[in-house]
Design a protein around this nucleic acid. Structure first.
Lengths: 298, 298
DNA sequence: ATTTTTATGCAGGAAAAGATTCATGTTATG
DNA sequence: CATAACATGAATCTTTTCCTGCATAAAAAT
């Protein structure tokens, strides 16, 4: 398939060819109809380069490559057409149904969104001396996510872990904020942290499935998130989306300061090579795969 | 639009032209790509007739008419893609818009889902001696999530961290599997882990935004996930949903063994008070029938 | 610093697709 | 039956699209 071919050759491609590759992957709908010349014009490259690109990918010529693009496009179209009908029928693949369930949950989450509560949580985060985020087991992924992004914006965000949680809570000032995250079946540890914090007079917020959650009992503010498990997994698709809202809500309070903060982060990352800034080069990439026997994975 | 033009002129068309019209209306998906000659051949008519047909409909030439066919085709595609897209009224609260975007991305993810790749990844996970999951920074939340649930089902799942990653990769058998997770802007560390693993001859899989990702270069299998940042956040809503699919895919390979494994876990959790147990709401939500392939969803 | 390799665009020719003309056969009509 | 109008395909011409050789400039290697 085209995508795989490109992935394979990507590092071996010249700059101009890489931009062609990106365009095709990003706009197959347009690329499927363009002539070599037009495509070249769009990505700012000569017709020749486009044609050579097709050759490098192993196609006999540009038209053949374009056919490949068309194929994936048509593939997609037929998938979508199938999708439209499957709604209630069980014919659909279970992956589709899993995602479908997530989409429905997410819609429900949007519908029942309590914007006031979210905004309030945002300002609580922004004004707190420090924020402690508590979440264990599956919810730890959510807690981590929230902690990670809030750390970009605020200096005193901590992700609680079982070893040091109690100490951190005890030492927390009354102007701190504890955010607990848990869903059925609620983790005892998280409930304990919340209870303890509340007893100590520290403001608490919880992100949980609804007001009847044991977390809610010990919370000053509750963000309920519709939540639907898929098979044995507590699908956290909707909660993640709500986390985004929480982060946005907090960022909004900061106003233009966010921009500056992000710029500083950006600069620091650049200096420390945190992110990749160019693709690996050919001589390493092009070498034959160590196990030709694994070729069938591609 | 093309359809109306044809309907309008239909009675005035010659027999040969009518069959052309019929074919185009019935098979726009193919017609969009055919040359005048090919189309004529299929319908059993000469090239000339096809070209005259385009002229009769008022187009300046055959290519122009074909563009019109393409347009209705693409129109259809985008309609389908927007099927679940909500009207993004600008007046809506930014929280709503954020979730909207997530829903849209998720729909796109569902549409472009590569079920074959997912299933293959599932069996790779199931048969591997050990699975190493690599993800840093924001993607670490995803890596954690995947690691956490896979740990329920498989004995040798490890979440790599910067301190010990290299050693773990070096000591890994060729029957291991390394799963890398990263999105733009790709974390250097994750790319390095993948490169290193691939060099060592260890099978690798990556969950990333696109085939053009640097991770894809070092991967035997790639799961592309549409990905859309919201403001400065790399919203991971869609990727989380795909993680569910990966987990389900792996669980499916185990078959009924999943059921037993979950029961054991359940018992152990009960004995250790991992979860709160006083609420009657302790329904084993979603824990039923995890092994059955069909019975998962309603 | 010099040589080699690589990337790229330009120009011209080959091939494909499109448009037009013309001859043939068919149908309709007086 | 004869004529005219029309539909059609083959052949021919025109335009577009594709491909390749060559020159140049940039990057890499020595």
């Amino acid at each position: 398939m085209l995508g795989e071919r490109i992935a394979e050759k990507m590092p071996a491609l010249s700059p101009g060819q890489q931009s062609i590759a990106k365009y095709i992957l990003g706009n197959p709908r347009d690329a499927a109809f363009l002539t070599a010349f037009q495509l070249g014009e769009i990505v700012g490259v000569s017709e020749s380069t486009v044609i050579r690109f097709a050759a490098v990918l192993g196609y006999s010529g540009y038209p053949e490559m374009r056919s490949a693009v068309r194929e994936i496009l048509m593939e997609r179209l037929s998938t979508l057409e199938r999708l439209r009908e499957y709604d209630e029928s069980d014919g659909a693949h279970y992956f589709f149904r899993a995602i479908d369930k997530d989409i429905k949950t997410l819609s429900a989450a949007q519908a029942s969104l309590n914007t006031r509560a979210l905004e309030e949580l945002g300002s609580m985060i922004a004004v707190a001396d420090q924020v402690l985020v508590a979440g264990q087991r599956s919810s730890r992924a959510l807690a981590y996510y929230l902690w990670y992004y809030l750390s970009w914006l605020f200096p005193n965000i901590h992700l609680l872990d079982p070893d040091s949680a109690i100490e951190k809570v005890i030492n927390a000032s009354p102007k701190s904020l504890v955010i607990g995250i848990s869903f059925p079946r609620y983790t005892s540890w998280t409930v304990e942290v919340m209870r303890h914090s509340h007893m100590c007079g520290i403001p608490t917020a919880s992100i949980t499935n609804d007001y009847s959650s044991p977390l809610a009992t010990w919370s000053n503010i509750v963000i309920p998130v519709p939540w639907n498990p898929i098979s044995f997994i507590d699908s956290f698709t909707a909660p993640i989306s709500i986390m985004n809202c929480v982060i946005l809500g907090a960022a909004r309070v900061l106003g233009s300061a966010v921009q500056q903060r992000l710029e500083i982060l950006e600069r620091t990352w650049g200096e420390n090579d945190v992110y990749v800034n160019r693709l690996p080069k050919l001589e390493t990439a092009g070498m034959k795969d160590p196990g030709k026997s694994q070729g069938h994975f591609k």
